[in-house]
Design a binder for these strands. Sequence first.
DNA 1: GACTATAACATTTTT
DNA 2: TGTTATAGTC
Length: 752
Amino acid sequence: MSIYDTLNDKQKEAVFHTEGPLLILAGAGSGKTRVLTHRIAYLIEEKGVNPWNILAITFTNKAAAEMRERVDNLVGFGSERIWVSTFHSMCVRILRRHIALLGYDTNFTIYDTDDQKTLMRDVCKLLQIDTKIYKERMLIGTISHAKNEMLTPEEFRLQAGGDFHQKKIADVYEEYEKQLRANNALDFDDLLLKTVQLFQTQRDVLEYYQERFRYIMVDEYQDTNGVQFELVRLLASRYQNLCVVGDDDQSIYKFRGADIRNILDFEKVFTKAAVIKLEQNYRSTANILNAANAVISHNHGRKDKTLWTDNEDGDKIAFRQFDTAFDEAEYIVSDIKEHVEKGECDYQDNAILYRTNAQSRMFEEKFVTANIPYKIIGGINFYARREIKDILAYLKTVDNGQDDLAVRRIINVPKRGIGLTSINRVQEYAAMHEKGFYECLKGADLIPDIGRGVSKLESFVALIEHFKVDAKELTLHELMQEIIDETGYIESIQAESEIEAQARIENIDELLNKVVAYEEVCEEHDEPVTLSGFLEEVALVADIDNLDENSDYVVLMTLHSAKGLEFPRVYLAGMEDGLFPSYMTVTADDPDELEEERRLCYVGITRAQSELTMTCARRRMVRGETQYNKMSRFLKEVPLELISTGNKFSGSGKSLTDHADHEEPERKTDYQMARQAFKTKAFAAVQQGKSFGKPAGGKLEYGVGDRVRHIKFGEGTVLSIVEGGRDYEVTVNFDGPGTKKMFAAFAKLQKI
DNA sequence: GACTATAACATTTTT
DNA sequence: TGTTATAGTC
């Protein structure tokens, strides 16, 4: 009995087909990860391929880690030498070694979308672009697409021809590139593009990697874009052992430049390609799968395939329409609670999927008050938080002095009396002399009209230079701690807002933990701990990478983030025309956009293993105004016999809408009761100080006039205590720093 | 230069 | 609605 006996015929065929180009069309839940991992195992164990020669590219770090682990379990040894990584981290690894050949410094920084935006603002200011006409977002998007098509600014300009607008954008593109280079920075698209350019211009480098990666596998191939295709094509062009796995029905990143033709035309580009279809679904019940099939069948221009399953019918798909998004969230949360309490499932078996991140807020409130563990994936990325970006900007400045963006971010954070005028002076001076911002700071006394600002600038430079020395002597986490301490960052955020300070400090602690974790991983793998390495890891994490299967919480995320995952119980919330499919795509004249939304719906449905609930609301608040939505057209594409609207007040043979109308009066009372519960619960939470941070017991151990001690400010006398909604606001006259207002919950004052 | 009040924009999705 | 950029005031 071998490990391959558990595979079905098609899967075996895919595993055993190791030489030459291969396209695996793998429907949702058809076991494609199993095929990929077994294929790697087969290459190593049966074909004697050196693990060193295998490259597997996935979409997220999470998928990469999972694949490595599963290969590990199959082959035991040697798997750590396989390259399993995402496109972006693979490129960074290659670029760190060779980017000098393209005229960059090896410790380049990676700009995320926020940085891009800041940079674009600067560019627009410099070129005097009217951002009313040329929106920054649009400019970034256009440039990103150009990069995905591998167009240089010059080529873009040529293509623009006589078009005034396009020529203007070409100007912006050119300047944007210039600035990136001056900052020794690459944006996400550059990581791919520069790697391709490296391969195109450096024959020997390309040959080295072609020789190394004799067997290449690409997961989620339907979501690759132009550069990614070229990258893979270049790498595989020598040995042609390229195996791509994908599902055209799950292509949902067209807006980001993914080109579905990569998968549709695979056989045209690789003429000798074999094609294997995996059509048996192992994941979902027949009802769920049939619903998915029915929905996706409304799309045109698909690769021909029909997903089938041996699984039993299972429950019908539940559908519920509510009055408001509030009711919707209420229902879903209590439904989950009910199932868990009955012992039918754990929290982690449940996922709530929605179209837009904004929808998560409502659920979050409900979960907090219901005291149910939950995890929201996406939304505001951890690394996009202000305090994290600040600290990282310090690290970037220490690591790569050319990163002007980082320097300017922190030059007056915490406040050190360096204002806009000074910054602008330096900026002008730097632009005039074509020098870096930080470089100019070092010779600040040479800058005209800088006046009394000079001493402040000099002490800032001294601080950074001090950190640079530290960087050589201290470990990474010590350096970060040093930066936090020396800059007085914690005190500064405490001073501006006590309420937020606590969360921000927790985030900073979390960042410190991540540094330590990074150091440990490096140690394990016997790799050097570098600042650049940490910063790059930080730049390339997706929020989904933080999803932990071993923690018992309900998972909330967008449909996009859910791709590649599966859950026993899935809720698709906000199934409304105008929300999903989104208003943009409904009104767009391009029918392709609606098809992409439908594929998104297909992805959502096929995430469910055994139970699927779809919900919608008649009205919901969007951007401050109430929107009235009809239920999603996608819902109507699900055959009625697969749907249950059902429960106590369901009749039979009625249309979906009729049912929902009947439901309403009943729900109202439910809703009101729930609302009542919400209020009392929320209050209880305050009392316990659990979610809002009031001191346990609710009483303070000190009163007005008492002497207290604060961890940072030292000793002082309490002037007043004001009962706030959530906490006590305490005013203390400290002996040293003077009078401070703070909240009792995290001031942690001690009576003396 | 720092702080505050107002206006403007955003919401479709993100490696 | 909520955040963030800008203008205006101290």
